[in-house]
Amino acid sequence: MSSVDAVAVSHSRTGRLPRLNRRQRTLLVIVLSAALLLSVVAGGLLLGNEMLTTNLDQRNLSPSLEHPFGTDWLGRDMLARTLKGLTLSLVVGVLASTVSVLIALTLGMAAATFGRAVDGAVTWLVDLFLSVPHLVVLILIAFTLGGGTKGVILAVALTHWPSLTRVIRAEVLQLRTAEFVQVSRRLGRTRWWIATRHLLPHLVPQILVGLVLLFPHAILHEAAITFLGFGLSPQQPAVGVILSESMRHLSTGYWWLALFPGLALLVMVRAFDILGDNLRSLVDPRIAHE
């Protein structure tokens, strides 16, 4: 607010060591959250399946050094299950939200650039998808594709694009009236050139935010259809599977079954969120200098 305040605040901050400027801090946060996500994937991939084998001697152990997340009623190590589950969730989430963003980008740009007929068709499709209950479409697609990982990914990817499509279409419509876009056209630039050089860079923040927002949706929906039995099979170490199983055991005092996997899911979603926010603050010139 006031400049004098700003001076005072910045003085009080200099006490901390070593003082990084905001861009350095942003990069640090990006690196840390990316590292966390990568280590989850690496951990999940490197852990062999032997950790997941049933070991009836070690049933329902509370957290210890040997089993930091405890074990379940079949004696499986919960840390290993969680890591495996998170990896699977991450793969499902990333794949599904990437595909959704690509669909949204293509349809949104097409609707806003290729005239009234295309716009009408896209808008109709968006309205159609948004008017049908989400879970019903998900189940329908997953069921048609025979369930499993492929079914889940496709179902989630094919149902999460409509609202982002709307946002992108509105953004492009507005950008097309911007003077610098109109000038470009009179300077002889083609529609494709303008779309890739002028419009696309402006959509990057929307796309990043879209990805971040879709990601938890994708994971939760994956868990939901898995829980309903149309998705991943119970043998697969999905977080959704873990959580729904643990619900049955919560009342019997096995709190670690839900707490740690749930917390891990939360941390991962949050890491993704922070990653997206910080990326955005780097690529958006309006806030990049603050």
């Binding site: 607010m1 006031s2 400049s3 004098v4 305040d5 700003a6 001076v7 910045s10």
Partner: peptide, 20 residues
């Protein structure tokens, strides 16, 4: 002014310092 502005010098209004 935006929060990242630094101001030096004096601003006086009606003979009193113009504090934030």
């Amino acid at each position: 002014l935006p929060s990242n502005a630094r101001v030096t010098g004096t601003l006086r209004h009606a003979n009193e310092n113009l504090t934030p």
